[in-house]
Structures are given as C-alpha cells and as structure tokens.
Amino acid sequence: MKCTVCRGPAVIDLRRHNSNFCAEHFTKFCTDQVQRTIDEFDMFRPGDRLLVAVSGGKDSLAMWDLAARLGYEADGLYIGLGIGEYSDTSADHVRRFAEGRGLRLVEVDLATEYGYDIPTGSRAARRAPCSACGLSKRHVFDRVALEGGYDALVTGHNLDDEAAVLFGNVLHWQVEYLGRQSPVLDARDGFPKKVKPLVRLSERETAAYCVITGIDYIVDECPMSKGNSHLGYKDVLNQMEQQSPGAKASFYFGFLRSASERFEAEVDEARSDLAPCERCGAPTTAGVCSFCRLVDRAGGTIPPGGSTTSGDPASPVAITQPVELRTSAS
C-alpha cells in the first residue's frame, strides 16, 4: 500500500477518502482538515486566546497538539473528576504532555474546589455517571473560560462523537438539542464561545494521529462509562461505516448543511427562559441550576464568588472571584 501523495510506504488507509498516507502526509492531512474546519466555521483566528479542555485521552490531547502546531495560543484545562486510579493516570498523561511542550495547564479538582467527586455526585444525585460528569465538566469549562477571558473554549469532539450525538438526538427527537449540533456555538447568554475543530476527523484518525506523532494518551476507557447509550450508537454507526465508507460524515455534515437551521427556533425558545442561577450565577432555566443542585445533593459546596456581578446573563464575564487554579509551565 503506497501513500497517495508521495508513493512511499503507507501506514494508514482511509477508505472514506479513498486515500492512503505515510506518517508525514497523514499528519499533514490531519492539520489541513482541522485548519479547514477552523476557517470554514470561523471558530477562531490567530491571536485569539484558546482554552482546550483536556482529559488525557487521544482526542483532547490531539486537539491541543494540533492547536499548538498550527500556531494558536492554547492553554489546557484539566478537571480532576476523582474517578480513582483512572483519574490519577489521566492527570499524569496531561501533565507530562504540557510539561514536554512547555504549554500552560490549568487544573481544577472537583473534590478540592467543590467538595465532591463524580462517583459520589452520581450516586447522590441519582444521575448516570456520564450525566453527572458532563454536567460538572460543562460548568467548570464555562466558568474557567469566562473568568480567564478566553476567546473560545475548544473541545476534542470528533466526527464519531458528533455523529453519535446526532443519532441519539434524532432517535429521540430532541429538537432543542438538534438546534445545537453546530461545531461552533457563539458566546451568548453568559456562555463562552465553544468550538469543535476535530469534527472532520474520525475517532480512528485521531488515535492514529496520536500514535504517529508520539502523543502518550490514556488508552483505557473510563470505568464508569461502560454500557452507556452513546457507545452503543457509535457501534451502530461504525457497522454502517464499514459497509458504506463515508456514512458518518454524510450523516453529520448533511444534517448541518440541510437540516440544522430548521431547529433553531427551538433553541431560541429555550434561551428566552435563561436567567442567572441564584447560587452561582451561571445561566439556567431554573431558579437554582442543575450543577448547584448536584453539588448540594453530593454534600459539596459552591465556592464563594460563584455569582455574577451584573446579574446580566448576556455579560461576557459572569464570575467575580477566581477559583484556585494550579498551573504548570507558562
């Protein structure tokens, strides 16, 4: 098998692109795909300050590496979730990555900062672990991005992630969520700008990128995610992809191109009910936001300063007091 570009020995075949690549040209393929996505969706520009949410897994570390490789100013944000040895190992991967490249890493530990961890919070709130985890991470992502004055919060969601979410939202006709499937959500209503530059790369491609470029990521899956529906959707989509290469990209990008606008009204309607949480100031449609209720049930505390100064949900900076942040490098 030869590289489509240079005719040297290929290390990977991409059936949906009808291409094979050597290590050098696969790396170029990935950087080109990401730059194309950033530009096409006007995600951010040179000089913008980026906050990349990193877990120690392949996607987020690939995202951070690609952002730095493309010349963007990108800090990392790691959240200590308290999931036993898995969290300890993932933190080690992230710290080594940051230190090895001289990148600035911001760390927030849930137990230290809020007095609970994901296993405790999940049990206490009677939420599925992935639900409690996602809720916690979104709150901290938003808070640190706003407090730090970052121009965009960058996540490592890949094509498989987005296609699986779309599949689930269509399966259950979650029309409000369907209106939020864009890989770029502008800053508004007290939320930071959120972008997903990896949506043109499949999960297999981000993993291959890490192997080829020597990124040492945590291979083991989170022990609390077993059996979640999201993984089941991915399995179904990959069975279709095997039969029909390009099926996932066609499904996801076809939706963005032809149908996503039809669900914007539902999103606007949901936004009209947003107001600052009485406890932390984050935007919510309830008096007290889901995150604060989770912390309450888990026996934790919201740190002082988790309230807005202006009370204006559209204010770009809603947090007055900084959380304790640990940083490495600078």
Partner: peptide, 10 residues
C-alpha cells in the same frame, strides 16, 4: 489491537 472508541455522553 488498540480500541479507538471512547467517551461518555456528555
């Protein structure tokens, strides 16, 4: 043989 599928529903 390295699995590449990951992630919870967040």
């Amino acid at each position: 043989v390295r699995p590449v599928i990951s992630g919870g529903a967040s």
